[in-house]
């Protein structure tokens, strides 16, 4: 048994439709490679939890300060669309889990099918989100074209936000109506960005799957993208009741 460092460790392909996996040269075994990759990804997901955690802290703080603003603000969102999107994400989380499982068991066509369904779920989610944003834009609750305009000082000394016009005055009776929509937009837009990135990663993984790169001996990329997708679902599980059913 030679211990020649220059010889790559190779995980053989489980069938003709797969390709062997060459373990990266700085790892000794496929299991070490897998566990290192996974630990790194869990660390990244921990930072994601803290990123969204700060936004949730802001939500809870201002919800406590302006409970009426949040109650009335939440009523401007359609909970049915929120519940539909929750179900879409939960279903796509399930198809993702099944996709990872199919990769772990070297079922290439099933992996492709489940990953494709997950991307479909991501697309449906973003289409619904687009129509929700469109309605908010039409009601002047989030004027998207004015999002990056600075705070405007009125001649009478008061200030106003260009992106919050509230054409129908639905938030007129509560203090700082813009607070709810600022938090709603920040949280759902960063979450939506994760949905788009996640869908892109899944499509990338589908190319690798089609080439036969992922099988029982090597499925780490599928597993890690799966974890990312489940995190997206995890965040939405909290966003849905907090934003659409403001308690």
């Amino acid at each position: 048994m030679s211990h020649d460092d220059h010889h790559a460790v190779v995980v053989p392909a489980p069938g003709p439709e797969f390709v062997p996996h060459e373990v990266a040269h700085h790892f000794s075994t496929p299991v070490q490679e897998f566990q290192s990759g996974k630990l790194g990804f869990w660390l990244f997901l921990a930072t994601e939890i803290l990123l969204f955690g700060g936004l949730f802290a802001a939500y809870f703080y201002f919800h406590e300060v302006y409970p009426e603003t949040f109650r009335v603000g939440g009523q401007q969102l359609d909970w049915r669309l929120g519940a539909l999107n929750t179900s879409v994400l939960l279903l796509s989380s399930w198809t993702m889990a099944m996709g990872v499982r199919s990769a772990q068991t070297s079922q290439k066509s099933k992996t492709l099918m489940f990953l494709g369904l997950t991307v479909l779920g991501a697309a449906i989610f973003m289409v619904i989100k687009f129509f929700e944003y469109k309605a908010k834009n039409e009601h002047g609750l989030i004027v998207f074209s004015e999002l990056f305009r600075p705070f405007i000082e009125n001649p009478d000394g008061t200030g106003s936000l260009a992106w919050f016009q509230d054409y129908h005055g639905v938030m007129a009776g509560v203090p700082h109506g813009h607070m709810f929509f600022a938090i709603y937009l920040t949280m759902t837009a960063i979450h939506g960005l994760h949905v788009v990135i996640g869908a892109g990663l899944i499509i990338w993984i589908m190319f690798g799957t089609a080439k036969g790169r992922f099988h029982a001996g090597y499925f780490m990329p599928v597993d890690l993208v799966g974890l990312y997708w489940h995190l997206v679902d995890l965040i939405w599980i909290f966003l849905f009741p907090l934003l659409y059913l403001v308690p």
Binding site: M1, D4, H7, A8, V9, V10, V11, P12, P14, V23, T29, P30, V31, Q104, T105, S106, H215, A216, G217
Partner: peptide, 18 residues
């Protein structure tokens, strides 16, 4: 060359291969 198959029969849930 070292060929790692990473086979662990104990945990293979009915999927005896790799």
């Amino acid at each position: 060359s070292d060929t790692a198959t990473a086979t662990d029969a104990h945990d293979a849930h009915g999927h005896g291969e790799l």
